[in-house]
Design a protein around this nucleic acid. Structure first.
Lengths: 147, 147
DNA sequence: CTGTGTGCAAACTCTTTGCATAAGT
DNA sequence: ACTTATGCAAAGAGTTTGCACACAG
């Protein structure tokens, strides 16, 4: 959400200053763990990730962080609009680093998610929201099985 | 020998023969528990129900059944195509007794589901399934928040 | 310093499993 | 009788919580 100012201290690659600014803009203190997790999450393009997966990555990257903090951080990022939680059945939660309008293929057999660009899919004929409610988001999940 | 009705103390009601036939057709032995649960599930129109909810209903109806059997039965019914599992985020599983093509409003705040008739919504522009895959089903979930 | 964030482990929820018993055909 | 289903309780996976210590501002 924050506009990148031209900070002379920013170098190529992972810009910790930009990450810090982004966290600050979301009202989150840029702690070591949050900066590291944000870098992992947003440094590699669009991803679908679970708490467990992120924890494993963090450990491999030498970041000392507990699973509890992973959960806290994912939810904080989600509430700040930096992540979107995915609505897939199953007991695991997945978070999507791509918060723009798009949809998903879901391969049930392998639990795998594949992005569908948002501008491909058009949904027509939705009824109005009930009184006092408004539509926040429409999720389309296309379930795939072996042909 | 050809007595399809079983234990008279069970609340299978007038439709027990039909329920039995339906279970048999699905390759499931019409046990007391399965008959009772099928009656609860399909005797009241379309429903969205969790294992816990069904268990509670069964107990209230005087049907002696364990939670493990509820889970087994729900999954058996699902695999037979009598139920559809709903893809809503969260740790609880919900099953839908309406297996025809339709979609859902989801009120996140209250965890409540509302049916959207299947013929209202049209989804266009879906990309092809990846090689070796085919589309089994398209779920549309319309998330609602307070206006 | 001061207050927020974090780590740890235990608690918690939902779901599945193993095995002896009960029920259906 | 023979096979499958069920109940119970315990295990399992994923997630959340409480509290003392550590860190950012």
């Amino acid at each position: 959400m924050s506009k990148p100012e031209n900070n002379p201290s920013i170098k190529c690659g992972v810009t910790s200053a930009a990450i810090s600014a982004r966290l600050r803009g979301a009202g989150l203190r840029p702690t070591r763990q949050r900066c590291s997790l944000a870098t992992l999450l947003f440094g590699k393009g669009d991803r679908h990730i679970s708490a467990e997966m992120l924890h494993e990555e963090a450990v491999k990257a030498g970041v000392r962080v507990s699973l509890a903090t992973i959960y806290n951080t994912l939810h904080q990022f989600q509430q700040s609009g930096m992540l979107r939680e995915l609505a897939i059945e199953g007991q695991k939660s997945y978070f999507d680093t791509n918060i723009s309008n798009h949809n998903h293929f879901y391969i049930e057999e392998r639990g795998e998610l594949i992005d569908i660009p948002g501008d491909c899919v058009r949904v027509d004929g939705l009824p109005e929201a009930p009184p006092g409610m408004r539509i926040s988001h429409v999720d389309v999940v296309v379930r795939l099985v072996k042909a």
